[in-house]
Simulated scan of single mutants.
Amino acid sequence: MSISIQKSFDERSSEGFGKLYLVATPIGNLEDMTYRAVRTLQEADIIAAEDTRQTRKLLTHFEISPGKLLSYHEHNKAASGPELIRFIIEGKNLALVSDAGLPAISDPGSDLVKLAVEKGISVIPIPGANAALSALIVSGLPTERFQFIGFLPRDHKDRDNLLNSLQDEESTMLFYESPHRVIKTLESMFKAWGDRKVVLARELTKRYEEMARGLLSESISWLEEHPPLGEYCIVVAGAHPEEVKERKDAWWQPLSVEEHVRHYEEQEGLPRKEAMKKAAGDRGVSKRDIYKELL
Protein backbone atom coordinates (compact mmCIF):
# COMPACT_ATOMS: atom_id res chain seq x y z
CA MET A 1 0.00 0.00 0.00
CA SER A 2 1.37 3.45 -0.90
CA ILE A 3 0.20 6.78 0.48
CA SER A 4 -0.16 9.70 -1.92
CA ILE A 5 0.73 13.08 -0.40
CA GLN A 6 -0.50 16.35 -1.89
CA LYS A 7 1.26 19.62 -1.04
CA SER A 8 -1.39 22.09 -2.21
CA PHE A 9 0.75 25.22 -2.02
CA ASP A 10 3.83 24.00 -3.86
CA GLU A 11 4.15 26.33 -6.85
CA ARG A 12 4.22 23.50 -9.39
CA SER A 13 4.47 19.75 -9.02
CA SER A 14 7.76 18.07 -9.91
CA GLU A 15 6.14 16.71 -13.06
CA GLY A 16 5.34 20.25 -14.20
CA PHE A 17 1.61 19.63 -13.94
CA GLY A 18 -0.86 22.43 -13.37
CA LYS A 19 -3.50 22.17 -10.64
CA LEU A 20 -7.23 21.59 -10.46
CA TYR A 21 -9.08 24.22 -8.39
CA LEU A 22 -12.63 23.49 -7.22
CA VAL A 23 -14.17 26.96 -6.99
CA ALA A 24 -17.39 27.67 -5.08
CA THR A 25 -19.78 30.05 -6.83
CA PRO A 26 -22.84 31.91 -5.47
CA ILE A 27 -25.94 29.86 -4.60
CA GLY A 28 -28.13 32.91 -5.21
CA ASN A 29 -26.67 36.20 -4.08
CA LEU A 30 -23.61 37.33 -6.07
CA GLU A 31 -22.06 38.49 -2.80
CA ASP A 32 -21.71 34.81 -1.84
CA MET A 33 -18.52 34.89 -3.95
CA THR A 34 -15.28 35.08 -1.96
CA TYR A 35 -12.27 37.23 -2.79
CA ARG A 36 -10.18 34.09 -3.18
CA ALA A 37 -12.70 32.56 -5.62
CA VAL A 38 -12.61 35.69 -7.80
CA ARG A 39 -8.80 35.76 -7.79
CA THR A 40 -8.59 32.05 -8.65
CA LEU A 41 -10.89 32.50 -11.64
CA GLN A 42 -8.89 35.52 -12.76
CA GLU A 43 -5.59 33.62 -12.60
CA ALA A 44 -6.73 30.25 -13.99
CA ASP A 45 -5.63 29.29 -17.49
CA ILE A 46 -8.93 27.47 -18.11
CA ILE A 47 -12.35 27.59 -16.45
CA ALA A 48 -14.52 24.48 -16.87
CA ALA A 49 -18.24 25.08 -16.27
CA GLU A 50 -21.36 22.97 -16.03
CA ASP A 51 -23.42 25.67 -17.77
CA THR A 52 -21.24 28.07 -19.74
CA ARG A 53 -24.09 30.57 -20.23
CA GLN A 54 -24.62 30.87 -16.49
CA THR A 55 -20.90 31.07 -15.77
CA ARG A 56 -20.34 33.67 -18.50
CA LYS A 57 -22.76 36.00 -16.64
CA LEU A 58 -20.80 35.46 -13.42
CA LEU A 59 -17.46 36.14 -15.11
CA THR A 60 -18.82 39.28 -16.77
CA HIS A 61 -20.06 40.57 -13.40
CA PHE A 62 -16.59 40.18 -11.88
CA GLU A 63 -14.85 41.46 -15.05
CA ILE A 64 -13.13 38.14 -15.77
CA SER A 65 -12.43 37.22 -19.40
CA PRO A 66 -14.83 34.50 -20.61
CA GLY A 67 -12.38 33.54 -23.36
CA LYS A 68 -10.90 30.69 -21.27
CA LEU A 69 -14.31 29.10 -20.60
CA LEU A 70 -14.86 25.44 -21.58
CA SER A 71 -17.88 23.17 -21.15
CA TYR A 72 -17.87 20.21 -18.75
CA HIS A 73 -21.18 18.60 -17.77
CA GLU A 74 -22.95 15.27 -17.30
CA HIS A 75 -23.52 14.68 -21.01
CA ASN A 76 -19.99 15.41 -22.28
CA LYS A 77 -17.86 14.37 -19.29
CA ALA A 78 -16.66 11.13 -20.90
CA ALA A 79 -14.97 13.05 -23.73
CA SER A 80 -14.32 16.39 -22.02
CA GLY A 81 -12.88 15.00 -18.77
CA PRO A 82 -9.73 13.36 -20.23
CA GLU A 83 -9.17 16.44 -22.44
CA LEU A 84 -9.24 18.74 -19.40
CA ILE A 85 -6.85 16.42 -17.56
CA ARG A 86 -4.49 16.59 -20.55
CA PHE A 87 -4.45 20.41 -20.32
CA ILE A 88 -3.50 20.20 -16.63
CA ILE A 89 -0.74 17.66 -17.31
CA GLU A 90 0.61 20.10 -19.92
CA GLY A 91 0.99 22.67 -17.12
CA LYS A 92 -2.25 24.67 -17.24
CA ASN A 93 -4.18 25.55 -14.06
CA LEU A 94 -7.86 24.66 -14.37
CA ALA A 95 -10.70 26.08 -12.27
CA LEU A 96 -13.86 23.96 -12.11
CA VAL A 97 -17.20 25.58 -11.25
CA SER A 98 -20.76 24.29 -11.06
CA ASP A 99 -24.01 26.18 -11.66
CA ALA A 100 -24.16 27.14 -7.98
CA GLY A 101 -22.27 26.34 -4.80
CA LEU A 102 -19.48 23.81 -4.47
CA PRO A 103 -18.49 21.77 -7.54
CA ALA A 104 -18.40 17.95 -7.20
CA ILE A 105 -21.54 17.95 -5.00
CA SER A 106 -24.41 16.35 -6.95
CA ASP A 107 -22.68 17.15 -10.25
CA PRO A 108 -20.09 15.51 -12.54
CA GLY A 109 -17.20 17.41 -10.96
CA SER A 110 -16.55 14.38 -8.74
CA ASP A 111 -15.62 12.36 -11.85
CA LEU A 112 -13.06 14.97 -12.90
CA VAL A 113 -11.58 14.99 -9.39
CA LYS A 114 -11.23 11.20 -9.53
CA LEU A 115 -9.39 11.42 -12.88
CA ALA A 116 -7.09 14.13 -11.50
CA VAL A 117 -6.23 12.16 -8.35
CA GLU A 118 -5.45 9.06 -10.44
CA LYS A 119 -2.94 11.13 -12.46
CA GLY A 120 -1.29 12.63 -9.37
CA ILE A 121 -2.68 16.11 -10.02
CA SER A 122 -3.16 18.42 -7.01
CA VAL A 123 -6.85 19.14 -6.34
CA ILE A 124 -7.38 22.33 -4.32
CA PRO A 125 -10.68 23.44 -2.72
CA ILE A 126 -11.67 27.10 -2.94
CA PRO A 127 -14.53 26.99 -0.40
CA GLY A 128 -17.65 29.09 -0.32
CA ALA A 129 -21.43 28.86 -0.24
CA ASN A 130 -23.19 25.49 -0.06
CA ALA A 131 -26.98 25.20 -0.14
CA ALA A 132 -27.34 22.03 1.96
CA LEU A 133 -25.14 23.24 4.82
CA SER A 134 -26.72 26.71 4.71
CA ALA A 135 -30.14 25.08 5.15
CA LEU A 136 -28.84 22.84 7.95
CA ILE A 137 -27.40 25.61 10.09
CA VAL A 138 -30.65 27.65 10.04
CA SER A 139 -32.95 24.64 10.41
CA GLY A 140 -33.02 24.44 14.18
CA LEU A 141 -32.51 20.66 13.88
CA PRO A 142 -29.48 18.84 15.34
CA THR A 143 -26.22 19.60 13.51
CA GLU A 144 -23.85 17.27 15.42
CA ARG A 145 -24.42 14.46 12.92
CA PHE A 146 -25.93 14.80 9.47
CA GLN A 147 -26.11 12.91 6.22
CA PHE A 148 -26.27 14.48 2.76
CA ILE A 149 -28.46 12.46 0.38
CA GLY A 150 -28.97 15.07 -2.36
CA PHE A 151 -31.55 14.34 -5.07
CA LEU A 152 -33.67 11.21 -4.63
CA PRO A 153 -34.08 8.76 -7.54
CA ARG A 154 -36.81 9.71 -10.01
CA ASP A 155 -38.22 6.19 -10.18
CA HIS A 156 -40.81 5.88 -7.41
CA LYS A 157 -39.78 2.32 -6.50
CA ASP A 158 -36.09 3.26 -6.18
CA ARG A 159 -37.06 6.37 -4.20
CA ASP A 160 -39.23 4.38 -1.77
CA ASN A 161 -36.55 1.72 -1.33
CA LEU A 162 -33.94 4.37 -0.48
CA LEU A 163 -36.24 6.15 1.99
CA ASN A 164 -37.16 2.84 3.66
CA SER A 165 -33.46 2.04 4.05
CA LEU A 166 -33.06 5.36 5.93
CA GLN A 167 -35.88 4.65 8.40
CA ASP A 168 -33.46 4.03 11.28
CA GLU A 169 -31.01 6.83 10.36
CA GLU A 170 -30.61 8.93 13.52
CA SER A 171 -28.66 11.82 12.01
CA THR A 172 -30.30 14.86 10.40
CA MET A 173 -30.77 14.28 6.66
CA LEU A 174 -30.28 16.77 3.82
CA PHE A 175 -31.98 16.55 0.42
CA TYR A 176 -32.25 18.65 -2.74
CA GLU A 177 -35.52 18.81 -4.66
CA SER A 178 -37.15 20.68 -7.53
CA PRO A 179 -40.43 22.58 -7.05
CA HIS A 180 -42.22 20.13 -9.37
CA ARG A 181 -41.43 17.09 -7.20
CA VAL A 182 -41.18 18.45 -3.67
CA ILE A 183 -44.74 17.55 -2.58
CA LYS A 184 -44.43 13.98 -3.89
CA THR A 185 -41.07 13.66 -2.12
CA LEU A 186 -42.51 14.82 1.21
CA GLU A 187 -45.42 12.40 0.81
CA SER A 188 -42.95 9.56 0.21
CA MET A 189 -41.00 10.58 3.34
CA PHE A 190 -44.20 10.65 5.41
CA LYS A 191 -45.14 7.20 4.12
CA ALA A 192 -41.67 5.76 4.92
CA TRP A 193 -41.00 7.44 8.27
CA GLY A 194 -44.24 8.82 9.66
CA ASP A 195 -44.45 12.43 10.88
CA ARG A 196 -41.12 14.12 11.57
CA LYS A 197 -39.80 17.63 11.91
CA VAL A 198 -38.77 19.10 8.58
CA VAL A 199 -37.47 22.40 7.24
CA LEU A 200 -38.05 23.50 3.65
CA ALA A 201 -35.45 26.08 2.66
CA ARG A 202 -35.89 27.75 -0.71
CA GLU A 203 -34.30 30.57 -2.68
CA LEU A 204 -31.32 30.55 -0.30
CA THR A 205 -29.38 33.85 -0.19
CA LYS A 206 -31.78 35.36 -2.75
CA ARG A 207 -34.32 38.12 -2.20
CA TYR A 208 -37.21 35.70 -1.54
CA GLU A 209 -35.29 33.36 0.77
CA GLU A 210 -37.76 31.43 2.90
CA MET A 211 -37.64 28.71 5.55
CA ALA A 212 -40.82 26.73 6.32
CA ARG A 213 -40.51 24.76 9.57
CA GLY A 214 -42.99 22.18 10.82
CA LEU A 215 -43.91 18.50 10.56
CA LEU A 216 -43.96 16.57 7.29
CA SER A 217 -47.79 16.46 7.34
CA GLU A 218 -48.00 20.21 7.97
CA SER A 219 -45.49 20.97 5.22
CA ILE A 220 -47.44 18.94 2.67
CA SER A 221 -50.62 20.87 3.52
CA TRP A 222 -48.71 24.17 3.39
CA LEU A 223 -47.35 23.47 -0.10
CA GLU A 224 -50.78 22.44 -1.36
CA GLU A 225 -52.02 25.92 -0.40
CA HIS A 226 -48.82 27.74 -1.39
CA PRO A 227 -47.57 26.31 -4.72
CA PRO A 228 -43.84 25.46 -4.58
CA LEU A 229 -41.49 27.97 -6.19
CA GLY A 230 -37.71 27.77 -6.58
CA GLU A 231 -35.26 25.00 -5.73
CA TYR A 232 -35.62 23.40 -2.30
CA CYS A 233 -33.26 22.12 0.35
CA ILE A 234 -35.14 19.71 2.62
CA VAL A 235 -33.76 19.14 6.11
CA VAL A 236 -35.39 16.24 7.98
CA ALA A 237 -34.94 15.14 11.57
CA GLY A 238 -33.43 11.70 12.04
CA ALA A 239 -35.15 8.80 13.79
CA HIS A 240 -35.47 8.98 17.57
CA PRO A 241 -32.98 6.51 19.16
CA GLU A 242 -35.72 4.95 21.32
CA GLU A 243 -37.85 4.26 18.23
CA VAL A 244 -34.90 2.64 16.50
CA LYS A 245 -34.13 0.46 19.53
CA GLU A 246 -37.77 -0.55 19.84
CA ARG A 247 -37.87 -1.57 16.17
CA LYS A 248 -34.63 -3.53 16.40
CA ASP A 249 -35.81 -5.32 19.54
CA ALA A 250 -39.25 -6.14 18.07
CA TRP A 251 -40.29 -9.80 18.20
CA TRP A 252 -40.81 -9.96 14.45
CA GLN A 253 -37.36 -8.72 13.42
CA PRO A 254 -35.88 -12.20 12.76
CA LEU A 255 -38.87 -13.16 10.61
CA SER A 256 -39.19 -12.83 6.84
CA VAL A 257 -42.26 -10.99 5.54
CA GLU A 258 -43.89 -14.34 4.71
CA GLU A 259 -43.23 -15.67 8.23
CA HIS A 260 -44.48 -12.43 9.76
CA VAL A 261 -47.81 -12.61 7.89
CA ARG A 262 -48.16 -16.35 8.59
CA HIS A 263 -47.71 -15.68 12.31
CA TYR A 264 -50.87 -13.55 12.37
CA GLU A 265 -52.74 -16.07 10.25
CA GLU A 266 -51.82 -19.10 12.37
CA GLN A 267 -51.40 -17.64 15.86
CA GLU A 268 -54.26 -15.12 15.82
CA GLY A 269 -56.48 -16.67 13.17
CA LEU A 270 -56.62 -13.52 11.03
CA PRO A 271 -57.63 -13.57 7.36
CA ARG A 272 -54.64 -13.08 5.03
CA LYS A 273 -55.54 -9.46 4.20
CA GLU A 274 -55.80 -8.54 7.89
CA ALA A 275 -52.55 -10.38 8.64
CA MET A 276 -50.81 -8.42 5.88
CA LYS A 277 -52.21 -5.17 7.26
CA LYS A 278 -50.90 -5.92 10.78
CA ALA A 279 -47.48 -6.94 9.46
CA ALA A 280 -47.31 -3.71 7.45
CA GLY A 281 -48.14 -1.70 10.59
CA ASP A 282 -45.39 -3.48 12.56
CA ARG A 283 -42.81 -2.77 9.87
CA GLY A 284 -43.85 0.81 9.21
CA VAL A 285 -44.57 0.15 5.54
CA SER A 286 -47.72 0.09 3.42
CA LYS A 287 -49.87 -2.98 2.86
CA ARG A 288 -48.98 -2.66 -0.83
CA ASP A 289 -45.27 -3.08 0.05
CA ILE A 290 -46.08 -6.29 1.95
CA TYR A 291 -48.13 -7.55 -1.00
CA LYS A 292 -45.23 -6.90 -3.40
CA GLU A 293 -42.83 -8.78 -1.12
CA LEU A 294 -45.13 -11.80 -1.15
CA LEU A 295 -45.55 -11.95 -4.94
Rank of each mutant, 00 (worst) to 15 (best):
D99E: 14
R86S: 13
A104R: 05
E259S: 15
S134V: 10
I89A: 08
L152D: 03
V38K: 03
R12F: 06
L200F: 02
P241L: 07
G16A: 06
D51G: 15
M33D: 01
D289G: 12
G214Y: 02
S178V: 06
S221N: 07
G238V: 02
D249M: 15
R86E: 15
V236A: 03
L174W: 07
T52Q: 00
S2M: 14
Y72P: 06
T55G: 01
T52M: 08
K197F: 07
I27T: 06
P103L: 04
D195I: 12
A104F: 05
K92I: 12
I105T: 08
Y208G: 05
H156V: 15
K77M: 11
G230M: 11
R262A: 13
D10P: 10
L58N: 03
W222R: 14
L112K: 01
F17M: 09
F148I: 03
S134K: 11
D51C: 10
A49W: 07
K287A: 09
V38D: 03
D282L: 12
S65E: 00
I3K: 12
A250D: 12
V117N: 07
I89E: 15
A131M: 01
G28F: 01
E231M: 09
A239P: 07
V257N: 01
L255T: 12
W222D: 11
A78C: 04
V113P: 09
E187L: 09
C233H: 03
K245W: 14
D160A: 15
L174Q: 06
K278C: 09
F148T: 01
Q167S: 10
A78L: 14
P254T: 09
G230Q: 06
P254H: 07
G91E: 05
F9K: 13
T185L: 13
I85N: 08
G81S: 08
E43Q: 10
G150P: 07
D111E: 13
V199W: 00
W252H: 10
T185W: 09
L22F: 06
S217V: 14
G101E: 08
E218T: 14
E11Y: 12
A100G: 08
H263A: 14
K57I: 08
V235T: 12
W193A: 02
L102D: 05
V182Q: 04
G238R: 01
E15Y: 08
E293K: 15
I27S: 11
K77P: 06
E50W: 07
M173E: 00
P66T: 01
S110L: 11
L295A: 14
I88N: 00
A279P: 09
Y35I: 15
P127I: 00
D289W: 06
P108T: 05
P271M: 04
S219V: 03
A132D: 00
D51R: 08
A129F: 01
A37I: 02
Y264Q: 01
E265S: 06
G269F: 15
I234P: 02
S2A: 12
N76S: 08
K184A: 11
D249F: 15
P241Y: 08
F17K: 08
